[in-house]
């Protein structure tokens, strides 16, 4: 892999925070090494407090590392010029909420030296991309959380960046909101852009990321394709059904599935994937109704617990 292809390079990065006046020091990240390649979607995965935001702030030149260095597009992260090629959406962004969408985008566009028709065209395109054409002249304080996140992404794209960095772009959004963000990210990849985003939720990354890095307590514990890193294997399949007879449930339990009954539904956990078809068949034959079939995989939390357990 040649140097050109490396968009983000982090070398031995450490950041120590001092809490309070003469309080104790907290190392938010410790000796981080990471490379992100051109054109990929990289998921920066880790539980709350792992150090994701700290890493991103160093990349954006908002804070200075205690030791180590970070490069973006072959320039030092503190270089102001390199920001011309970056788009950034901070964690839980607050924007000037007295501005309308248009004023807001114009302001950031002007910070890149954009003006006139060029700026206007880009603004309109972006409003379309993030689906906010109708809210173009609405002040930001009237926006929902999802709309704010989308206008936030729009401002991150006003300069047609080569690299887009998003800090927890999906947190606090409902499933539809998350899907919209995922779609935007995928479209960016199609345009040949590199996307680096952080999250603490596995499903966010597993659907779209080329590679992920897993950060825990300030240390990178794993980097690679998600299915390489984690047990992608289905742990069990949960079948939810109605109108299943008592005898049949007893039979299933006897066959090794665990069964929970609620007032209306039953939930059947099938550990062996190969047996799922058989059980579905049984339910249908007994005039039962299958409501849903959900394969359950390892959660990030479980993965983390396993990691910590393995480490200690």
């Amino acid at each position: 892999m040649n140097m050109e292809d490396i968009v983000i390079k982090i070398e031995n990065l450490t950041k120590v925070f001092k809490k309070g006046f003469r309080g104790k020091s907290v190392a938010a990240i410790k000796g981080l090494n990471l490379e992100v390649n051109e054109g990929e979607i990289f998921g920066f995965l880790g539980p709350n407090g792992a150090g994701k935001t700290t890493t991103i702030k160093i990349l954006m030149g908002l804070i200075y590392p205690t030791t180590g260095k970070a490069w973006i597009l072959n320039k030092e992260a503190t270089d102001v010029e390199v920001k011309n090629r970056i788009g950034f959406l901070p964690e839980q962004p607050y924007f000037y909420d007295y501005l309308t969408s248009r004023e807001f985008l114009r302001f950031y566009g002007q910070l890149f030296g954009l003006e006139g028709d060029e700026l206007r065209t880009r603004m309109n395109n972006l409003l379309t991309l993030v689906g906010l054409e109708d809210a173009a002249d609405l002040q930001l304080h009237k926006f929902s959380k999802g709309m704010l996140q989308r206008i936030g992404i729009a401002q991150a794209l006003i300069n047609r960046p080569d690299l887009i960095v998003l800090d927890e772009p999906m947190s606090g959004l409902d499933p539809i909101g998350r899907k919209e963000i995922r779609d935007i990210i995928l479209r960016l990849k199609e345009d040949g852009k590199t996307v680096f985003f952080s999250t603490h939720i596995i499903p966010d990354v597993e659907m779209i990321c080329d590679r992920v890095g897993i950060l825990m307590k300030g240390e990178l514990v794993n980097v690679g394709r998600l299915d390489e890193i984690m047990d992608a294997k289905v742990k069990y399949v949960e079948i939810i059904a109605r109108n299943v007879s008592k005898e049949m449930l007893a039979y299933m339990e006897a066959m090794g599935s665990s069964v929970y009954e609620t007032w209306e539904h039953v939930s059947i956990k099938v550990e062996d994937e190969n047996r799922v078809d058989g059980i579905l068949q049984l339910i249908k034959e007994g005039k039962g109704r299958v409501v849903s079939v959900i394969p359950q995989r390892e959660t990030l939390e479980e993965h983390f617990i396993k990691k910590i357990g393995g480490a200690s």
């Binding site: 200075y64 030092e76 503190t78 270089d79 102001v80 010029e81």
Partner: peptide
């Protein structure tokens, strides 16, 4: 032009 802490 790089503006960093030391330069400033």
């Amino acid at each position: 032009m790089t503006i960093n802490v030391k330069h400033s």
